[in-house]
Every structure is written in C-alpha cells, then in structure tokens.
Design a protein around this nucleic acid. Structure first.
Lengths: 211, 211, 211, 211
DNA sequence: CATGAATGAGACTTCATTCAT
DNA sequence: GATGAATGAAGTCTCATTCAT
C-alpha cells in the first residue's frame, strides 16, 4: 500500500540520519543503511534512484519544519519574544532529535558538493533571513537597539546557537540544549533590550540577576 | 635533502587542505592530492604511512598556532583587549588563509571518526578553555560583568566567530572576515563593558557610535 | 480478454524492437520496455516468463513474413523477377519499418548467445537458401549465367542488401531503401542477364531500361 | 618500464576483442576481461580509466591499418587491381584474425551508443569513401563502366565483403575468407570490365543514364 | 627515493526475476 | 491479473595501500 511505501521510504531517511550521526556524512553508504534497515541495497534504490536523492531527502527532512517555525514566529505578539521563540523552537526540535545536529554540522561539507550546494546555502540563508526579519521587526518596534546592525545581531544569535549545537554534540548531549540555548539567548536579548531602554532614558535599574 | 623532504611533506599537507577546501573532507583522496602535487600516490605514502596520518598532519597544521596565539593573548595588558586580540588573531589567520576554514567547518564530521575524535575535541575545547580563561580574567578584573556566566559569554563569542566563518565561506569570502568579526565582537564587548560600568554606577554614555 | 492479452503481448514485442533500435540490443532492459509500455516490469513477466522469451518473440516477429515472402517469390513466373521480387519485398518491409533493421544488424551479436544462436543462424541460412534456390532456378532456366557459382551470386545480392540496410541506418533513413536497393539489384541482374544472353549469342542491347 | 606498460595495455585490448568475439559486445565486462588476463579488475582501470575508453581502444585497434591499407591501394598501378587489392587486404587481415570480424559485425550495435557513434560511422564511411575513390578512378580510367553509379558499385563490393564476413563467422571460419572474397570479387570485376570492354567495342551505351 | 603496477575491499547502481497482495 | 516491494548477482568504478624496480 501507499502507507507502507511511505513508511519504508521514510524509515530509510531516518536510518540514514542515524548513520550520518554515527559515522559522519563522508561515511554514509547505501550498504550500511541497508544493513541497518535489514533490507537489500537494491531495495534502497527502489525508493531513491540515486544515493544523492536519498541525501536530498535527508536534507529536506532536516529542514521540513523551517517554514512552519518561521510562520509561527511571525505570529508571536511580542517581537522580542518572536526572536526568542524562533531559536527555542529549533533548540527544542534538536533537543528531541539530537542526531539531527549531525546534518546541521555538515553544512559546510555538504556545500562542497555542487549537487547540494544550492539547497544547503538556500536553507542556511533562509534561516538567517527569517531571523533577520524578526530582529529587524523588534528593532523597528524600538525593542531592540538600532545602533547594532541587524546582521550583526543575527550572526551573534544564530552563530551562538549553531556553535552550541556542536558543543552539545561534543559533550554527548549531556546538558539540555533547549535550556542552555534559551537561557543564554535570554541574557543576550535582555542585555540589548535593557541597555536600549536605559539609553533611551528610562530610569531602570539595579537588581536584575541572571543567576 | 632533508629540507626538500620536509618541504615536500609540508606541501602535501597544504595541497590536502586545498583539496578539502574544494571537495570537502569526504572527498579527499590520495589520488587527488598526488595529482595536484604532481607526484605519484605512492610518494605520499613515503611521507605518511597511512592516509589518516596525513589527515592528522592536516589537523595539526590547522592548529599549529593555537599555543602561540593563546600565549600572546595572555600577554596582553588589558584583559578585555586580550579577548578581542584572541579572536582577531584567528580572524586574521583565516582571512589570509581562507581554505583553512574548511577544516574548522569539518570538525563535527571529523569527530565522527574515532581516530580523530580526541584530537578534534581536544583542539575545540582547548580553544574554548583559553577563551574562557581570558573572559574569566576580564570578569575578575571587573571589566566584564559577572552576572553572565563565563561559559555563556564564551559561547556567544566563539559561536559567533565560528558561524561567521561559515557564512564567509558561503559568501565566497566576499567580505573581510577580520573586519566584520572584530567590529561585531567590539560591539558585543563594548555592550558588556559599558553596561557593566554603568550598572556599577559610572555615569557615562555619550557619544559611542557603532556605525 | 484474450484479444487484449495478445494485444498487450504484441505491443510489448513492438516496444522492445523500438528500444533495440534506439539503444541497441545490449541495452534492452525489461525496465525500459516497461517504462515505455507504461506497465510494471512484473507485467512483462506475465507475458514472457523470461527476458529471453521476449527476445525470442522479437526474433520470431522479425522473421514472421519469411515463409510468406519465400512462398510468394516462388510463385513468380519469371525466375529473374522472382529474385528481384524476393529482395524488394524485404526492402519494402524494412522501408516501412526501419526499426526492424536494428534486429537485422544485430544478428552477429545475438548469435553469440547460445540461446539464440540456432534461431539466428537458422533464419540467416534459410533466407540465403531461399535466395539460392531462386537464383539457381534462374540459372537452370538459362536466365542467369552458370559460370558464376550460385553461392557467389547469392552472397553478392544478399550482402549488398544487408549492407545497404546498415548504410541506410547510418544515414538516418534519408534515402529510400526500397528504391535504391531495387535499382541497384536491377543493374546487377541486368548485367548478368544481358551478359549471359550476349555471351550465349543473343543479339541484344537495344533498349533495356534500368528504370 | 614503458614497454611492459604498453604490453599489458595492448594485451587487455586483445583480450577484450576475444571476449567480444566469444560473448558479444553486449556481454563484455571488465570482470571477464580481468579474469582472462588474470589480473584484477582494478588493474584494467589503471590502463583505461573507463570501460568505454577500453572500447574506444578496441575500435581504434580494429581500424589501425585503415590508413595504411588505403594508402597502399592508391599506390597500385592498375586501377582495377587497386580495388581488388583494397578488399583483399582486409580479407587477408580478418582471415588471420577472425575475432576481428566480431567488431565489424557490431558496428550497428556500437553506433547506438552516442559515445561511439561518431567513431564508428567515421570508420564506416571512411572505408566507403576510399573504395569509392578507387572505383571512381577505375571508371575514369575507362576500366570500369560509367553506366553504373560509383556508389552502387561500392555498395555491391563492400556489402558483399561485409556480409561474407558474417557468413564466415556463422560457418565457424570453415572456408578461406580471403580466397572466397577475392575470387568472388574477381568474378564481379571481370564481369564489369569485360562487359565494359565489350560494350566499348560494340557501339552501345548511349541512352540510359543513372545520374 | 620515486614510481608504475597491482590489488582487495567496497562504493554505487542496474538487472532480471519473484512474490505477496 | 497487475503491481509494488524486494532481492541476489553482477557491473562499473574508486580507494588506500603495497611492492618490485
């Protein structure tokens, strides 16, 4: 049936992600995927006519919530919250599916292959663009300062997130990605928001403690 | 001669880095390296008995200034300057040798291979540790706030840097890594330093312009 | 229904011939045939339990008029005309179904496979034999000379025809196979007939018209 | 050494021809060639980077005397002899190297592959062109009749030859290709020359025009 | 020393064929 | 009765590595 077809096809994708997570992009082989799925290599090629088609599916799977997350973020009332929400959604996602960070961390490697280059940079810049738009809105709303370029703020935020994902991997997922990422982001955003408010002249004050 | 021998050996390493930069870690082959070096594949194995030995050499080469940079950073008088100095040294280095960022961006992939895992995470955490120490000193000197965890600040800084290296690659090195990284870091550090000073009570504020 | 069943079966054969024509015998695959027929590969195996059965059917189809053509040729009144008729029938057939020449030109290749060897050489020699009989009759009737061995004449005629079919393929069917083959054959036969007549003493020469 | 390199490379070509002869073009596999050469498959790819490169070498080898044969033919004093010489040289060649006819008989199949199409039709038409030139010279010298189109005569001659090669294969080389081909060609040429001579004597010839 | 030749292992992929549904 | 799923065998080709010269 169709459901079983999709099922198997999707399971192959999931298994491939596991293999990438474990052995690295450079060591994904149809043989290993087949072995784990307990099917023949040929069976994989019924579902994906080339190995690269499978990898395309993996990348698509990796980014499958991007549109949804972006849309939800834009629906947030508070523009600073929206920025926070955006990042935390990803943190939550990867927190629940740590293997996925293997794909995230393979972006540069994948982009070397002309076949994936466009798709990868597409995803990368689309995410940056969404974040940029969110930050920009917060700036326009006077909630984030204008004296820092949107791009810089975006790079700080997203750079932090991406890097923490790597650290998280290297630490064998021993801390909560979601909590650490959201806490740190909060510090950063508060810093900017508060600094901003103050500089605009609001007496505001002592005593907030991030600890 | 011995010097020519070393020369050749080092040239193989450099060529390998170029190949990684162009084709990605997963596509480095002794054949391609030999082709570019215009020597036989076998000749490579005279210098590196295994392909992995070559890769070890590449990684070592990648990190060869780490100790020096760290030491120099610690020699800086101003503790905040030291943080800045540390990052900018790397930015400068990569700015002059962009292919090197290919190695940086392959950390996660390389770490999958047990043979490189320790070395890679070693380099990674050593850098973080240096930065942590530098930040920590600045905090102890009262130049950076204590209400943000050292680790968080480090992750913000290093995360930003690593991420910008990726963006830089994706943009085909179209902007100056060094300038952008140092400017943005400056914004961040100023924010922290100034915020800190103010909250400690120093009236200040007029006139800094990040644009 | 049975008719539809036969219909489908025959269509598979026709499609296979098209594939052979386009990709060559060595590249016929059940997959490609199925793709063109817009049926599943398995469906082919409902009609032909082995791929070779399909190829047998193709060969049979290729030779399906052989008996009829031979019989008709033998019914011709004029024995030289019969020879001509024989060749022209084939020329006409292939002229209308150019793909068929792909099979003709694959005889040597097909004959390498023991499974087809007998059938292929059978068809080949049967055609030669028919032509030999026709020529032989013309010789016995004194219409073609005896000083040339029947076999030689047959090889000249059939060789010419087969070769022209190849040339015709290589020329993308840009000339009329039927016209060229029949005209040239006529030249040859006239040469022999006239030469013969003359050498036997018949005053001849006025007015034979090769058109 | 270089000689050994060429040696092995050439031996692979010869072995491939044997395999083609035995199993047919469609069944040549690097595996089988390697098995016969008692080397590994990979070794073949040291000498020919693609299987098709090997096949190109086979085709080149097949046609390696073409220029020489053509040149020698043009050096013949008697223009009719030249035609004869041309064909007999090939007959002699194949007679001594029967497996070669497997290539000749695979022309149509090879031409299906775009990669070989040009080379194959190139060889084919080059041979026809040489023969055409030879025949044309004989016609201009008044040694062969003008009332038959050069092309037709060429097709008769070459068609006969090609076809006899096939028959020869099907007969397991049981007769002498060289003798049979040269004898039959002689009959044909004599017929034309004599007919011509006679007709030159007997005022005839006006009136039909093939052009 | 450097190289050309060689190789076993393994990569991706295609094929004819089977079978449950 | 037709199909989607599956498969084992085989095909082309690449790779890291070895070794005689």
């Amino acid at each position: 049936m169709d459901s079983s077809h999709l099922h198997r096809k999707e399971r192959i994708v999931l298994t491939t992600i596991d293999v990438i997570d474990e052995f690295g992009i450079h060591n994904v082989s149809t043989r290993e995927v087949a072995r784990r799925e307990k099917i023949s290599e040929a069976a994989i090629f019924r579902h994906f006519s080339k190995k690269n088609d499978l990898l395309h599916a993996v990348i698509d799977f990796f980014a499958r919530y991007d549109d949804d997350i972006a849309a939800s973020a834009f629906l947030q009332d508070d523009p600073v919250e929206a920025v926070s929400y955006y990042l935390v959604r990803y943190a939550e996602y990867y927190n629940n599916y740590p293997q996925m960070t293997a794909i995230l961390q393979s972006f540069a490697v994948l982009a070397c292959d002309p076949e994936f280059s466009d798709k990868i940079t597409g995803i990368y810049f689309a995410r940056l663009k969404v974040l940029e738009e969110l930050v920009s809105r917060a700036q326009e709303a006077g909630r984030l300062p204008r004296w820092i370029a949107t791009e810089q703020l975006v790079d700080l935020i997203w750079g932090f997130f991406q890097s923490v994902c790597l650290k998280w991997r290297f630490c064998s997922y021993k801390f909560s990605l979601k909590e650490y990422a959201s806490a740190t982001l909060q510090v950063l955003l508060d810093l900017f928001t508060n600094f901003h408010r103050r500089s605009v002249g609001k007496g505001y004050d002592e005593g907030f403690d991030y600890r």
